[in-house]
């Protein structure tokens, strides 16, 4: 560890700590403290008044063996992540490749594609609620042209997840814009060299574009993973977790358990499992990154 030796270095060290103080205090009060507190709470029964009652691993036992709602959350959240994430990574890249062409008006297109990614929240969830309306929604209207019967996008437990994936893909611009930045950072000499070696455009994509893009794919994968596991607002607004708990994502489960049923102890248990799940998957992906992510200047 760095140890300041001279008087000036010591002064700098003190100043450095003062500069990061806002964050450091915030970390202790709003992150680390609550993290430990909710770990403790996860072993208790607590209704918001009095003192939490220690019940050991009772909450964990109940969650795994007796609570069907917990498994609803596991199923719905994993289904959403597995259904949405790969599609977003592939389609996002496809759109970014199109955007990387030198055609007129590309900035306008970039704006149009990126806009849905930044307009989030209740307004958009309300909007999609009506887009998905079974009788009078625009989706039913468009599908009607092709003779598709009306689908209860948000009321049929078998299709509701498709609705959520479709809606999430609408915001694919965020993934796309990161890819685009990655594509534009690839030096054009590499393409020229590959062309001279006789590579066609498909070969250039496989041997130049894709390997050099792996850090960006990695970034999109990790951030996408963390975000997708925390899906809440859209389900809270559009379905409230239904129909028949098909969209009872972790976020909804924790929110309802804590702030509707006032079971703060048990809500902390579920939240902790979500945290561990996200952390484990993130670390796993990071662990595999050495094998498939290419960092310029690291090897050879």
């Amino acid at each position: 560890m760095y140890l300041p030796k001279t008087k000036m270095a010591r002064r700098e060290a003190i100043e450095g700590l003062l500069f990061i103080l806002p964050w450091l205090v915030g970390y202790l009060i709003f992150r680390l403290g609550p993290l430990l507190a909710s770990f403790y709470l996860s072993f208790t029964n607590y209704g918001g008044t009095g003192t939490p009652k220690w019940i050991g691993v009772g909450n964990y036992g109940y969650m795994f063996s007796e609570d069907p709602r917990f498994w609803d959350s596991v199923r719905s959240t994993l289904t959403f992540v597995v259904g949405f994430l790969p599609l977003s990574l592939v389609i996002g890249l496809g759109i970014a490749l199109l955007m990387n062409q030198k055609v007129r008006g590309i900035l306008l297109f970039r704006g149009i594609y990126y806009l849905p990614a930044v307009t989030t929240g209740v307004a958009v969830a309300l909007l999609w609620q009506f887009v998905f309306h079974k009788q009078y929604g625009v989706l039913s209207g468009i599908l009607g042209w092709f003779g598709v019967p009306q689908i209860g996008w948000l009321v049929d437990p078998n299709v509701v997840m498709y609705a959520f994936i479709l809606m999430a893909l609408w915001g694919i611009g965020g993934t796309m814009i990161v890819y685009l930045a990655g594509l534009q950072a690839i030096p054009s000499e590499l393409y020229e060299a590959a062309t001279i070696d006789g590579a066609n455009s498909l070969q250039r994509f496989w041997t130049v574009t894709l390997p050099l893009l792996t850090p960006v794919i990695f970034f999109n994968l990790v951030t996408g993973l963390i975000a997708a596991f925390q899906i809440f607002e859209n389900a809270y607004i559009m379905t409230g977790g239904g129909p028949n708990y098909a969209t009872y994502f972790f976020g909804l489960n924790i929110y309802f358990t804590a702030f509707r049923s006032l079971r703060f102890g048990y809500a902390s248990t579920i939240a902790y499992i979500l945290f561990v799940l996200i952390a484990a998957l993130t670390l796993f992906v990071m662990g595999t990154s050495r094998r498939w992510v290419y960092y310029a200047g690291e090897k050879e």
Binding site: P34, S38, A271
Partner: peptide
């Protein structure tokens, strides 16, 4: 990568 969910109860 820390979800808001894991701290929201203590915050509240």
């Amino acid at each position: 990568m820390m979800p808001a969910w894991v701290v929201i109860v203590p915050h509240f």
